[in-house]
Amino acid sequence: MQQYLLHIADNALILGHRLSEWCGHGPALEIDMAMTNISLDLIGQARNMYQYAATLEGDGKTEDDLAYLRDVPEFRNVLLVEQVNGDFANTIARQFLFDTYHYFFQQQLCESQDPQLAAMAEKSLKEVAYHLRWTSEWVIRLGDGTIESKARIQRAFQDLWSFRGELLTPALYETEAVAAGVGVDLGAIKTAVEQKIFNVLDEATLVRPTDGWMHAGGKTGRHSEHLGFILAEMQFLQRAYPNAAW
């Protein structure tokens, strides 16, 4: 259960962190603000989940202990969310691939037999519904925009496609969570997720990349090199000044 909660929280935190890197650097003020809203939603979701995980762990653990005092192998997020921002197209493609998964995931999580998880999912689902709407529209705009934007978003999907598989392939703790009646059966949302992706790609006049090798490992703590740098930055103060309150 603990691993499962951390997995959900880490996904949200790391992606929220990545998006927050855009703050102040977006292509237009309105877009900048929209991305920050998504980032704030995700970090908020992560906080709720860490707080829940911390109470289960006991020992006076806090959300910050979980976010700031674990190292790379202990993080359970998928590889997709730790990938670099790249250009705006890359950020949108990454966010869209996550949002499609995240939407159907949260929808199913509302059915969890753990009432707290179900309640959090219900709140998150409303936020994620907006994220998915927003990123879908940007995929379509970029795909059906100019020659340059089409090339950029097409390339972004090409580059990120191999991180898609991990989202829908359960780790052991996910299978256990399903068996316990609290987690989401990824097999049950696979078709809906893919259908949504394909529909949007079609409307964006983009080519579906062919499924080939799919990266995995993040869910069990084998990450890309990027996560180490994210954590080095994020955890710097907590590590440099141990036991201080902020």
Binding site: L13, H17, S20, E21, C23, G24, H25, L29, D32, M33, T36, N37, S39, L40, I43, G44, A46, R47, Y50, E63, D64, A67, Y68, I230, E233, M234, F236, L237, Q238, W246
Partner: peptide, 27 residues
Amino acid sequence: GNWITRAPSLRRKVALLAKVQDEAGHG
């Protein structure tokens, strides 16, 4: 914005992020 990714707690992080976003709004 320089410190958003280094904020020392999650509470500080969301507060700072929301504040810097407000500045975009004010602009």
